[in-house]
Nucleic acid binder design. Structure first.
Lengths: 146, 146
DNA sequence: GCACGATAAGTGTAATTGCACGCAAAATGG
DNA sequence: CCATTTTGCGTGCAATTACACTTATCGTGC
């Protein structure tokens, strides 16, 4: 009997987690000089691109737990990069929006993020990177739990 | 000027993290009835497939931090699924090996893992899943940090 | 206008993770 | 053979994450 197929290499989930850890370390390293983690930078992107929004909406866009987002907001608020204020029409909703300082830091950090993207795509291959993103997008959209 | 391309959908790292979270939740749910997290099950696989090995070697195989592995071992040892004993030739090395009980639980949990794999591959597509694993493997092998 | 459930957020808490550090055993080399 | 460096592990600690719960506000029906 031939050796049992690698239970390790064939696990879809493990390969995802390992790759995510590997790439996260790299992106975090690139963004560290600006005092941002990838998660924090991602929040800035979301607000910069799509504008102000309530916490729950942002969390859904980022596929993050709402409470995790809440805690990720703290250091950003403390650094004066974004503000949070209740909506006029619904005082339960806390609208998040970038401050001018937030936009500034976002503009400063974006080249570092772009450099990380470029380095990654150079190493992995631009076509493969695009294919990978598409596959991952499909995976996230796929309902599995139940 | 047209709207800036989605900074969100185009981030390689974010798409990886989101997919990893999404799929991890599913696998963990499938393995929960056996009292195993995906990480713990992965450790059993590693030992079942490749046999006994020192902690550092296992950590490298699994692309896990060594200290994280050490802590993941605790509940498995407490449950009597694996044992840890110093090598005869090098008493620094702690050799990990499955107990018969560990092999038993591994055999019990493997169908659940296989079912998760099958469900995932059914939803995502077997061909796409294989392509994704290959791409992810490439990514993990790619040196990025520096 | 008021009681009711539904929705948006914040907090307590526990599990997980990984870096920095310390300790013991082995290898090196004078 | 002893001193030094290297290697294999465990632990303290802080950061991150997410589930369960609480609070405040909104909408509905009576």
């Amino acid at each position: 009997m031939k050796a049992k197929a690698a239970g390790l290499g064939s696990c879809n989930c493990l390969s995802l987690r390992q790759a995510a850890r590997h790439v996260s370390q790299f992106y975090d390293q690139q963004l560290a000089p600006f005092g941002l983690t990838l998660n924090q930078y991602t929040i800035l992107v979301r607000l910069a691109v799509l504008g102000a929004a309530p916490i729950t909406a942002v969390a859904q866009d980022l596929v993050m737990d709402r409470t995790t987002l809440t805690r990720n907001l703290k250091p950003l608020q403390a650094a004066g990069l974004l503000t949070q204020k209740p909506s006029d029409s619904d005082r339960r909703s806390q609208y998040l929006s970038l401050t001018s300082r937030g936009e500034h830091v976002f503009a400063l950090a974006t080249p570092a993020w772009a450099a990380a993207q470029a380095r990654y795509e150079q190493e992995v291959g631009a076509g493969q990177a695009a294919a990978l993103r598409q596959l991952l997008h499909n995976v996230v959209q796929t309902p599995l739990l139940g």
